[in-house]
Amino acid sequence: MCDFCEKWKLKINSDKTKVTVFGFRRADTSTLQFVCNGQSLETVHCFRYLGVIMNYNGSFKIAIEELHKQALRAMFALLNKCRKLQLSVDVTLDLFDKLVTPLCVTVKKRIIGYWGRLLESKESKLSKIMYNQLHSLHSSGAYASPWVSQVKQILDDCGLSYIWITQKYNNINWLKKIVEQKLKDQFIQRWQSELTSMTSCDTYIEFKQEFKLEKYLMYENQNSRQAICNFRTNNTRIPKVTGRYKGLERSERMCNICDSHCVGDEYHVLFECKNVNVMYYRKKYLPKYYVYSPSKIKLILLLRSNNSGVIAKTGAFLRNVLPLFK
């Protein structure tokens, strides 16, 4: 047994123990030999600890790739089970958040939570001693620890720079809550900004003004629900969408199933298209209020509606009309 193990009365299973030499470059271990209990230990360049792969150079690239693969497998398994059990969208999303949750907000919240608990820990604790050293080096500019820099960046982004400067806060629950809320608010602001800057979302941004679960996603008819979702998110083959992939100007993306010489956008599909089948389904399904004297405002109201009857009729209309565009 080595001196360290003897001192701390540690019992190590030599068969399950490996050695990694950390450094910026991969070390030449051919001349190194590590022995435990009289048995030579295998030297490796990375190892798994508590489910996370540690690499010799301190990089977590391999760990991230592995966690990404695990998350994908978990997600596909979850979605497969949800489809078989015919679970509603809200239940599926809730399960996703609990089982997968690949959200930067959650990760940053946990970083701050750990940092906060670290500040409250005893000065004699090894992790606290290491943090104090890293913080001192960061403050002096001698060394910028990526983790310490990340903590500071998160607090700065949340308008909590004074907490970093003072290294003090009210209580851990308050800190985690305020950081989470500010990060969510920033995420929604970026989401709205990105939508506004995308010309393809010019109609979507009009009726999708809140970051929330839409009621139409709870509609029991899957085909109608899918049709509404595709229509709202430009996942269709109407001329407005396909013309973009062809490099056509918006004014040149004419409807290809009627001779009205109008741009085949959402408004045209719902209210203007003169195709016989479209006119039939429009009369059969769409509420008269929206069809009579149509306008851009009525388009927004129709696609924003939370009325179950309107959702059902809009879904039935789109389910039958969208396949006409090929």
Rank of each mutant, 00 (worst) to 15 (best):
S14A: 14
T20V: 15
F24I: 07
T29H: 04
T29K: 06
S30Q: 11
Q33E: 14
F34M: 06
V35L: 10
V35E: 11
C36Q: 06
C36F: 02
H45S: 15
N57V: 00
S59W: 02
I62R: 13
I64A: 15
E65T: 04
L67R: 15
H68M: 12
A77K: 06
N80Y: 05
K81G: 07
D94G: 00
V100C: 14
V107M: 14
V107G: 09
K109S: 10
I111N: 05
W115H: 02
G116Y: 05
L118R: 01
E120H: 06
E120Q: 13
S121F: 01
K125G: 01
N132G: 12
H135C: 06
S136G: 06
S140K: 14
G141E: 04
A142P: 01
W147E: 08
I154T: 07
D156Q: 11
D156Y: 08
D157W: 02
I163L: 12
N170L: 14
W174F: 11
K176T: 03
I188S: 08
E194H: 10
S197W: 01
I205T: 14
F207T: 09
E214M: 12
Y219P: 00
N221Q: 13
A227Q: 03
A227L: 05
F231G: 08
R237E: 12
R237N: 15
P239E: 03
E249W: 00
R253E: 08
M254T: 05
C258L: 08
C258Y: 05
C262V: 02
V263I: 15
Y267T: 11
C273G: 03
Y280R: 11
Y281R: 07
L286P: 11
P287C: 10
P287V: 08
K288T: 10
V291F: 04
P294E: 11
I297L: 12
S305R: 07
S308I: 13
S308Q: 14
A316M: 11
N320P: 00
N320H: 10
P323G: 00
L324Q: 09
